[in-house]
Design a binder for these strands. Structure first.
Lengths: 107, 107
DNA sequence: TTTATATATTGCAATATTACGATAATAGAT
DNA sequence: ATCTATTATCGTAATATTGCAATATATAAA
């Protein structure tokens, strides 16, 4: 117990849940919003902006990277993070489609 | 620790995260999809359809109700669940707006 | 080479989530 | 009133998530 029973659901249901789980955290939402409005999206800036410890931010960035929502480009001793725009649009469309199709089928 | 530091985020960020957290589970996604394509959305039907124990389904329904995404109408000894269409649209628009505005701000 | 700076990883504590058996609550059927 | 069916709640076990201190890694600067 404690684990989600993924086996009994479809690949689509599991995939959507995984993506939503990554998004379902205010720190990660704040990180995405901050990255999106910065020219230079340096990790350390994020730490100062958000107000969580550096290891915590690093972990959140890792989770966002796990679904390819952001990309980190190494420049010297720094890492510049930015949003993967194609993936961003794909995920937006996937979620939007879920809302539209589920709504259409309503009784 | 273990708790999200909600205090350091905006009300909007926390609200969006809360909504996404409710959606971020394959069982709840499956429940919503099942409810949306049924005329009679009886709790017991959901239990049989999804394949999780009745208390587990009941708990998931409670979480979906916590953000008013579904409503339960008592009819005799049964409860007929259906999607709150206004809330469904509102939440869909909220998430869509997050994707659109964040994308617009991209560097 | 040593030092300072930036980021990632590890390990751990606290809390949250998922799932279910047992049981309570409620309403219809006998 | 008793039995049965349906749903909700309680209690608990297992696992996941959040957050951070300590530490490792890597690059630039002195």
């Amino acid at each position: 117990m404690g684990t989600t029973k993924s086996q009994i659901f479809t690949a689509q249901q599991n995939e959507l849940a995984t993506i939503l789980k990554v998004l379902a955290n205010p720190a990660r939402i704040a990180i995405l919003q901050h990255i999106s409005c910065q020219k230079d999206c340096i990790c350390n800036d994020i730490v100062e902006e958000i107000g969580l410890a550096q290891p915590t931010i690093s972990q959140h960035l890792k989770e966002l990277k796990s679904i390819d929502l952001i990309e980190g480009e190494i420049s010297g001793k720094r890492v510049c993070y930015c949003i993967n725009q194609k993936k961003w649009q794909d995920i937006g469309a996937l979620i939007n489609n879920f809302f539209k199709t589920t709504y259409i089928n309503c009784c």
